[in-house]
Design a protein around this nucleic acid. Structure first.
Lengths: 152, 152
DNA sequence: ACTTAAACTATAATAATTATAAATATAAAA
DNA sequence: TTTTATATTTATAATTATTATAGTTTAAGT
């Protein structure tokens, strides 16, 4: 964890940004909840536990900054809010998501499934791909097996 | 065009919804601007030209309804607004998008590029895919060629 | 220590979307 | 056709997410 923090600190410094205590607290929350897909509000509430004096706007600004530096990715699953997802260490491409329409769970796929597709897009459409967003909507393993509904 | 309207009318009736004049006006705007990716506000303004008495909330409700019936798809390119995109006639799957980070243009890809990928997801993750969202971000042909910037 | 710029808090403002109440239109039943 | 019930709409208020602003604090460089 400290290693990742250091790494991010360097990334910030490289662009002459500082890792302020507020930014660090925010990054720590993101690291601790790496599996989740938290909204700005969620993150704000969690950061507040560590650093109660932090303001919501600071969290937004921090997330915006981390987004620009490609440290986190801002994603949107169609519910009104943006969610923030830490890029995996050294990940070249952004990972994909499987969103279950039954229970709402979100699973991540690290594998690069789009290599071939990107080549086709490049070749047939002349489009130079820089980044991608791929989300599948469907029914997760758990929901298929049990008809146990976890719906809230 | 009338054919598509009729078709949509039937889809609505099948679920015992009516094609009210307001809904029809909205659908007509979507058909006329099929290539575009309009926001609710955009659509509202265009519908107002045909039916000045329509309210914004009605447009939202109509789009919500059309979304549920899979007649349109609600998409989000990361700017704050939702955009609404008519499904192509008889299209089995939702089309993909190429968003240019230089000029902001959005191109559509009709081809199904994800057939293989979906099989892999199904097999290796046990996830039953119902729908997908795929967007590539990068530089479009035009922006690559000329360094003519269309940035606003 | 002094100066400057970046970053912060608190709060107000904005923008997108959703909810509500009253009115209207539509379809079904009598 | 009249009545009744239901769906839909308008107009507007409320909500929610996000961004901007003003004044204050912090930190880095001299």
């Amino acid at each position: 964890m400290e290693h990742r923090i250091d790494q991010i600190k360097k990334q910030l410094h490289a662009q002459s940004y500082k890792l302020t205590p507020q930014r660090e607290a925010t990054v720590r929350v993101l690291l601790e909840r790496e599996e989740d897909h938290l909204s700005a509000e969620d993150i704000y509430l969690l950061v507040k536990e560590k650093a109660p004096e932090i303001g919501l706007a600071t969290v937004y600004r921090t997330l915006e900054l981390l987004s620009e530096l490609k440290i986190v990715d801002k994603i949107n699953f169609g519910d009104g809010v943006s969610r923030y997802d830490l890029r995996k260490e050294g990940a070249e491409h952004f990972h994909h998501h499987l969103v279950c329409i039954e229970c709402g769970s979100v699973e991540e796929i690290e594998e690069d499934l789009l290599g071939d597709v990107e080549k086709i897009v490049q070749r047939d459409w002349g489009f130079q791909v820089k980044d991608h967003r791929l989300t599948f909507h469907g029914i997760c393993k758990q929901c298929q097996e049990g008809s146990v509904q976890l719906k809230k």
